Simulated scan of single mutants.
Amino acid sequence: MEINALGLSIKDSEKGIEKLNILLSNFQIYYQNLRGLHWNIRGKRFFDLHVKFEEMYNDSQLKIDLIAERVLTLGGRPMHTFAEYIENNSLKIGKNISKDTEAIQLIVDSLSKLLEIERIILNESAENNDEGTNAMMSDFIKEQEKTIWMMHAWMEE
């Protein structure tokens, strides 16, 4: 088995890079959805949601950078074109969403899909002793599960 400078299997790292690039693509779409929600939200909850969506897209931007840097750390090349992002995306693309409940539902649905991808990466990185990727996925999952819970609480009115 060929090993890279990190002491990880090159073959396993290449598979991890592919999955991380898929996650990166989906996060880019999630990020852009959040920007659109931030710009287009209307109604009585505008002030609260406008600020919340900005907080969320800033957080997503940080996660996008972490994912891309992990791809580089593993010896890969992060995807970086919109064509690649769209080709590898599995999230719903939100267009012209201005209603609060529709916006929150898009976020919940997107986070649920991101969690699916992250759990696959989590399991595979654990099997491959890739602690760096595993820890990152664990952190993402914990935070996103809490966000989903909060979004559900918000929708309960």
Rank of each mutant, 00 (worst) to 15 (best):
N4H: 07
D65R: 04
L49K: 01
F140C: 08
G16E: 01
D65F: 02
N123K: 15
L6M: 11
T147R: 15
A103E: 01
M56L: 15
S25W: 01
N128L: 12
W154N: 10
E87Q: 12
E102P: 08
E145C: 01
L6P: 07
K113Q: 12
G94N: 09
I121K: 03
L111I: 12
A126G: 05
I10N: 00
T147E: 13
N134G: 06
E2Y: 13
W154D: 11
L37Y: 00
E2W: 10
S98N: 13
W149P: 03
L106A: 11
I93P: 00
V51H: 07
R77F: 08
N128M: 15
A153T: 11
E157T: 01
I121P: 05
F82R: 06
M136I: 11
S13Q: 06
F46N: 06
V51N: 08
K19W: 01
L122N: 05
K99P: 06
A83Y: 06
H80Y: 02
T101W: 04
A68D: 06
F53R: 01
L66W: 02
L62Q: 15
Y30F: 14
L72P: 00
K95N: 13
W39R: 09
L106Q: 12
M1T: 13
K146G: 00
I117K: 03
S112M: 05
L111M: 05
N4V: 00
E145G: 04
N58E: 15
D65M: 05
H152C: 01
Q28D: 08
I148W: 03
E54Q: 14
I10T: 04
L62E: 14
A103V: 06
A5V: 04
K113M: 07
D130C: 10
D65I: 05
F27H: 14
N123Q: 08
V108D: 04
G132A: 14
N33T: 04
S110P: 04
